[in-house]
Amino acid sequence: MSTLTLTGRKVVGGKAAGEAMVTSQTISGWGGINESTGTVIELQHELRDQSFAGKILVFPGAKGSSGWSAYFHMTRINGVAPAAMIFTRMTTKIALGAVVTRVPAMTDCDQDPLTVIETGDWVEIDADAGTITVTKRKG
């Protein structure tokens, strides 16, 4: 199995490991997820009806209402938060959301995580060290 390593900037410190869930689409908090199940509910979203609970969520970032952080905050309280977040576009919504979800989070990676990481890959993230190790599911 092939592995690769990305380096990037810590947003929220900590370590986590898990299966990647990758989307090229931004995610809405309020109106976009079910905070009780950790499921994407937005009608036209490619992750619709899929749960990110316990997954390493790899996505461009946040969109929509200012309730973004409050909804991801509730996924933590309800035990259905993602295990970590890797994203490409920094905004106040995603920064505050990652902080209150209290999971390791990284951005500004040296390779495009949306391209080099695929759903199902095994991802180990050490946000304090600024490293992401990806073990490819295929190959």
Binding site: S66, W68, S69, T92, K93, L96, G97, V100
Partner: peptide, 8 residues
């Protein structure tokens, strides 16, 4: 202002 959240 930025778009702030409940906690901030």
């Amino acid at each position: 202002t930025n778009v702030e959240g409940k906690e901030s």
